[in-house]
């Protein structure tokens, strides 16, 4: 078995409400797996349980055959999982490069050092990461004045700082122009290929989902209701009913990705 991530009957209840209901799936090495579904279907809850922001009510999560259920986010990160957020989370009082240096300081165990000047540490490595996401010429700009799309790239650079085996991306292209969406997803796909990483992402833009994922899972009311490639998902009547609708809202051509 070379599953990078595996969940077993993952369940989360809030009071009487079942937000995530017995979700089991497996993510293979090098795979780009999309998780789609209506708002409130449980995608974010599911994500937060994988990363440790939420404790699962029951069920298990394995990373490369090691159980990580119940670990705190920072412990999950140390096991080799990076994540980007739906609403970007960057350090607004720092420069672009300092944002990335921060992740490197953590990765190299420098956080509890009181004497060196932080902005001089791991600078070259941070520049390389910024180069990877195309932000190197903005390295010394103040994060708070950047455009949204650029913040998303910084987040990606932060998430890649410790060369994770798995990347979790929560609506990576939300709030971007179509051209930017394509660029970001192609960049992600390239990194996945080059570094042998795996990606699980949620997304509402069906053009992005159908073009850039290897496989798609659909959630509704906490349950996985369908799984398959783009064509299978598009033609699934149940998915059309609860989520996709009549198909007016995405490009009709499906790029083949196989």
């Amino acid at each position: 078995m070379n599953g990078v991530l595996k969940t077993q009957r993952l369940t989360k209840t809030f009071g009487g409400l079942i937000a995530v209901d017995n979700v089991s799936f497996e993510l293979q090495k090098g795979e780009l797996l999309a998780l789609i579904g209506p708002n409130g279907a449980g995608k974010s809850t599911c994500f937060n349980m994988l990363m440790g922001q939420l404790k699962a009510t029951s069920g298990k999560v394995y990373l490369a055959n090691e159980e990580i259920t119940g670990l705190a986010p920072r412990q999950v990160w140390r096991k080799g999982v990076g994540r980007t957020f739906q609403i970007t989370a960057t350090y607004s009082s720092m420069t672009v490069i300092e944002n990335v240096q921060m992740a490197l300081l953590s990765h190299y165990g420098d956080i509890l050092r009181f004497l060196p000047r932080a902005h001089l540490l791991h600078r070259d490595e941070a520049l390389n990461l910024l180069d990877l996401v195309g932000m190197v010429n903005q390295a010394d700009r103040h994060c708070a004045v950047l455009a949204y799309g650029d913040l998303k790239r910084i987040e990606l650079a932060i998430a890649l700082a410790h060369s994770p085996m798995l990347l979790l991306m929560d609506e990576p292209t939300a709030g971007m122009a179509p051209k930017e969406r394509v660029d970001l997803m192609e960049l992600t796909a390239k990194i996945v290929r080059d570094q042998g990483m795996s990606v699980l992402f949620t997304e509402h833009d069906m053009d992005v989902v159908f073009t850039h994922s290897h496989r798609i899972m659909v959630m509704n009311r906490g349950k996985l209701i369908a799984e398959g490639d783009a064509a299978e998902i598009r033609n699934n009547p149940l998915v059309q009913e609860v989520y996709l609708g009549g198909g007016t809202l995405f490009t009709s051509e499906v790029a083949s990705h196989a």
């Binding site: 579904g37 209506p38 708002n39 609506e171 939300a174 709030g175 509402h204 069906m206 009913e241 609860v242 989520y243 996709l244 609708g245 009549g246 007016t248 809202l249 995405f250």
Partner: peptide, 10 residues
């Protein structure tokens, strides 16, 4: 339409 399912957009 930001962050809303296609069925809702319709």
């Amino acid at each position: 339409s930001e962050g809303v399912a296609p069925v809702i957009i319709e």
